[in-house]
Computed example of a mutant assay.
Amino acid sequence: MIDNPPGPDALTLSETAARRLRQDIVGGGLPPATKLRLRDLSARYGLGATPLREALARLAAEGFVVLEGQKGFSVPPVTRAHLLDVTRSRQVVEPEALRLAMSGGGAAWEDGVVTSLSLLRHEIGRRDPASEAWLDAYEVRHHRFHRALIAACPLPSLLRFCDDLYLQKTRYRRLMETAHQDWPRMLAVHEALAEAVLARSENAPSMLAAHIGTTAEHVLALLGEAPPGP
């Protein structure tokens, strides 16, 4: 007998659960290696077991949650191997998406890059690294900038993969000592990248790859490990 598919309300609850869980995992609200028990999650989010179970299965397929046999679900641990995997994967696919975007992007794409950079500049200008709310707002602007760079890429599957890898990397970036970052230098890097992209510079993809590698170097330094090799 074939089960009836879930109704729209169930799907909405499942999607809500997945979105909130993903936000807390990426933002550090649910630290690495945390056990994700349905009872605890239900109390945390005010949702039932069914949508939470569906959300956990979905996030496990996306790599944001780990399922270990009888041990159940948990937040993935922070490991050097995973960080380098995500970093190097981004350095392969995101510059290619950027090449395609620069090749086909028009005035609307250029406007999106300029607007996203302006919003990022404004957010960095009002920075308060001690505030979780500000860090969340900064992450939104930073993500928007990176999305804008490759938005004109004509391959939706490649864009989705870039987005998934970006979020995986964000979890590591939030573990960094953000309060001690050189914010003026960070802004200058993004401004130089945007300028190269808008000029259709052949160096822009390699600049993006280098920028992506910076987070791995900082996190590994905090962990007392050597930076990744070429």
Rank of each mutant, 00 (worst) to 15 (best):
L52D: 12
A97D: 00
R37D: 15
V86Y: 04
L223P: 01
W183V: 06
L117Q: 11
P205K: 02
I124K: 05
L220R: 00
Q91Y: 02
A107V: 08
K71G: 02
E225A: 14
G72D: 13
D136C: 03
R174V: 07
Q70A: 07
L36D: 11
A108I: 13
E132I: 09
D111C: 09
E132L: 10
N4S: 12
T34R: 08
T12L: 12
A196H: 03
A204T: 05
A204G: 04
D163H: 12
R44V: 12
A18K: 07
P6R: 01
E110N: 08
E217N: 02
R200G: 11
R53T: 06
F73W: 15
P95A: 11
D128V: 09
V219Q: 00
R80D: 10
T34A: 07
V65P: 00
L119C: 14
E132M: 11
R173Q: 06
A101E: 14
G28D: 02
L47D: 12
R39L: 12
R141Q: 10
R144F: 12
V197T: 15
W109K: 00
L67T: 00
H146Y: 14
Q181T: 10
P227F: 14
G27N: 15
N203M: 13
L159S: 04
H190F: 15
L175W: 12
N203P: 04
L223Q: 15
A188Q: 11
Q181M: 06
T115I: 04
A148D: 08
R88T: 13
V92P: 03
A81H: 10
I2A: 06
A33G: 09
H142G: 03
E191I: 12
R39A: 14
T34Q: 07
G112C: 04
S131F: 10
G28C: 04
R126V: 09
L208F: 08
L198H: 13
G213V: 01
G229C: 11
S118R: 09
L117F: 08
T50V: 10
L149F: 05
G69N: 03
R185A: 08
L56S: 09
N203E: 15
A133E: 07
S157Y: 14
I212A: 06
R147L: 10
S103V: 03
A188D: 11
A188E: 11
R90T: 03
T34Y: 00
G104T: 03
R37N: 15
R80M: 01
L187K: 15
L13D: 04
A209F: 14
A33Q: 08
E62H: 09
G112P: 04
L120W: 00
R127Y: 14
D85S: 09
G213I: 02
L38K: 01
T215V: 03
L193G: 10
H180S: 13
G28S: 05
R171W: 07
L187C: 15
A57K: 06
T178S: 07
R58F: 11
L38N: 01
D128W: 12
R58E: 04
V113Q: 05
V113C: 09
L222I: 02
L167I: 04
S14H: 11
